[in-house]
């Protein structure tokens, strides 16, 4: 129904507010952007599921990995270590299937931000730990630390979260199937 007459009724740029402009930008190339969204979902989601699964069955190790950062009190760190694998799997599964993408991505991204801060402070304080991101963790020899690689990887994952926070729409998501998002 796009006729000349319709076209003239579209609001001119000077009254279009900032939010509407951002909205238009976000939806300029829906197919390409939806594909990026799918990729971001799968990368962050699969990494979270794998990271959680590898920590299963070793509660002491998971607790030690968190204790190794020496940020939280010993007992708090123990319970955070117990909870983390399950939280990662729940978030990861939500992202992989694309259900409540925006909130799952926001929490996943914040988790990555927390990891980046944790690893950075360990590096700055001269601790020699493995990040324990995929099981393992705790004290390692100084030559075995991989802080720059670990931070770079988590920054990449945080960016996946940030993209989905900005534009949660993507291909092949339950959000779309159920709520036509």
């Amino acid at each position: 129904m796009s006729t000349q007459g319709d076209h003239r009724t579209v609001a001119p740029d000077d009254v279009e507010d900032h939010a509407a402009y951002a909205h238009r930008l976000r939806d300029r190339h829906p197919a390409a952007f939806d594909a990026v969204g799918l990729l971001a979902r799968l990368v962050l989601g699969v990494v979270l599921v794998v990271a959680g699964a590898l920590k299963m069955g070793n509660p002491v190790g998971a607790a030690r990995a968190v204790q190794g950062y020496r940020v939280m009190p010993y007992d708090v760190a123990t319970y955070v270590g117990y909870a983390l694998p399950y939280a990662e799997i729940v978030l990861g599964v939500l992202l992989v299937v694309g259900l409540f993408t925006r909130i799952a991505a926001a929490i996943g991204g914040l988790l990555m931000l927390a990891f980046i801060i944790g690893i950075s402070q360990a590096w700055a304080r001269g601790l020699t730990i493995d990040c324990g991101c995929f099981g393992g963790g705790g004290q390692v020899a100084a030559s075995q630390t991989k802080y720059p690689q670990e931070i770079a990887r988590d920054v990449g994952l945080a960016l996946c979260g940030a993209w989905l926070l900005w534009r949660p729409r993507s291909f092949a998501s339950l959000d779309r199937a159920l709520f036509r998002a």
């Binding site: 509660p59 002491v60 998971a62 607790a63 123990t78 319970y79 270590g81 117990y82 909870a83 694998p85 399950y86 939280a87 799997i89 729940v90 939500l94 259900l99 409540f100």
Partner: peptide, 23 residues
């Protein structure tokens, strides 16, 4: 959303309990 949130919370809490019992 409520169902998913409840299931997620139960999963994490159950995980903490399972892990602390296991250790």
């Amino acid at each position: 959303g409520s169902v998913v949130a409840v299931v997620a919370i139960i999963a994490v809490v159950a995980g903490v309990i399972i892990n602390s019992q296991a250790s």
